[in-house]
Write a protein that binds this DNA or RNA. Structure first.
Lengths: 205, 205
DNA sequence: GACGCCGTACCAACCGGTCGGTAATGCTTT
DNA sequence: AAAGCATTACCGACCGGTTGGTACGGCGTC
């Protein structure tokens, strides 16, 4: 934490390069030399900062967690007074982000987890922590919304928070498989509709 | 079509071995020698049946399509007279399948698409075809259910059919990332609840 | 002058793919 | 049906290039 302001450290440059490359080509297919080239350093620097490639994978997942949690913690949707409005605001933000190049809006840890869940437990755990922690940031508002608007519905706040992530991750897979970004955005619309139905919000048609 | 009944051909053995290995370790991390060893043949046989590794990837996705479409086409949920019952029957089946080892119930083409969407367009397209074709098998029933029970709701049958796949794929990612299979099953419960709400089925609490 | 930081040079293992050769399986012709 | 021939199916050694990782040396700074 408390990163030096402007001159990005070599470690940070390597981490940022790793994020971009892994998001585009996946963990196994990216080489450390590729990352070094993108960061503008050599392998000597790489292996000074990371014990091995797996170590970088864990650090990349942690770096991703830090970056994204900063982004969503300071996002605009928190201004809403009502918990449900904050939830829907979050969903709307996620929907807006689905545009442009696939590698620019898809999720690093979702991509990595699929690849390494069996071969690299340390990376898998880092990915799991990242997703779970992000979902947990929605839990309190989910809890409040359930209590206020769907008290008889037997869904837990935790499960519902995770569901938002499941739909979003699934949307990314569809976007990658079909090559159609609009298809992914549709999926988030369904997620919004589900939440609106569950919390009995009039949707207008 | 019309495959020889019992003695599995070498090509089929290679394809089955590829499915198992790629589902466990991903496309990039599996070597052709690994696949050969699992199939009990040598590299000579492999490169006799496939031009290169990418060609195998495409063939594996197609083989996956054929296998899974057979499975779901002959599944029990088709016995229901009502389209919505068939849809919910499908979802219930998908939920039942989520158990045991991750590599045994997760989706090959979802896994591959994430990895190769940029580096191997031919494999990506095969994965896209597989998912889209599977979703399309649900479209007619979705269409009928929408017409009968939610005519004023502006969702398309195609989009809703794809949503089932998005949730299921997302559930697989969560299962891999958290290591918890029950979490994945929960996500399919949410999918079922969404469909029930959308089509105004009383759920009992 | 010791230590953090990073570049250069290098290595051993591995991986996709090739190639020459062989066994088996038809297909033809007599 | 036997012989002759062509094609397919498969083996396994080999090759060129790549990859993760190491050894070491230089350079700046406190």
């Amino acid at each position: 934490m408390a990163a030096p302001p402007h001159p990005r450290s070599t470690r940070e440059k390597l981490l940022d390069a790793a994020l971009a490359t892994i998001r585009a080509r996946g963990y196994a297919a990216t080489t450390v030399e590729e990352i070094c080239a993108a960061a503008g350093v050599t392998k000597g620097a790489f292996f000074h900062h990371f014990r091995n490639k797996e170590d970088l994978g864990v650090a990349a997942a942690d770096h991703w967690s830090a970056t994204t949690s900063d982004y969503f913690r300071t996002a605009d949707f928190h201004r809403h007074a009502d918990p449900l409005d904050r939830i829907l605001g979050y969903v709307d933000l996620r929907r807006q982000l689905v545009r442009g190049a696939l590698a620019d809006f898809t999720c690093l840890v979702g991509t990595m987890a699929q690849e390494v869940y069996q071969s690299h437990p340390a990376i898998r755990d880092a990915c799991g922590r990242s997703i779970s922690a992000h979902a947990a940031t929605l839990e309190a508002d989910m809890e409040a919304a359930i209590a206020a608007r769907a008290p008889d519905c037997n869904v837990t706040a935790k499960s519902l928070a995770l569901h938002t992530q499941a739909v979003i991750q699934g949307a990314f897979i569809l976007a990658k498989a079909t090559g159609d970004v609009a298809t992914a955005a549709d999926q988030i619309d369904h997620l919004r509709r589900y939440l609106a139905l569950l919390f009995s919000v009039p949707t207008g048609a």
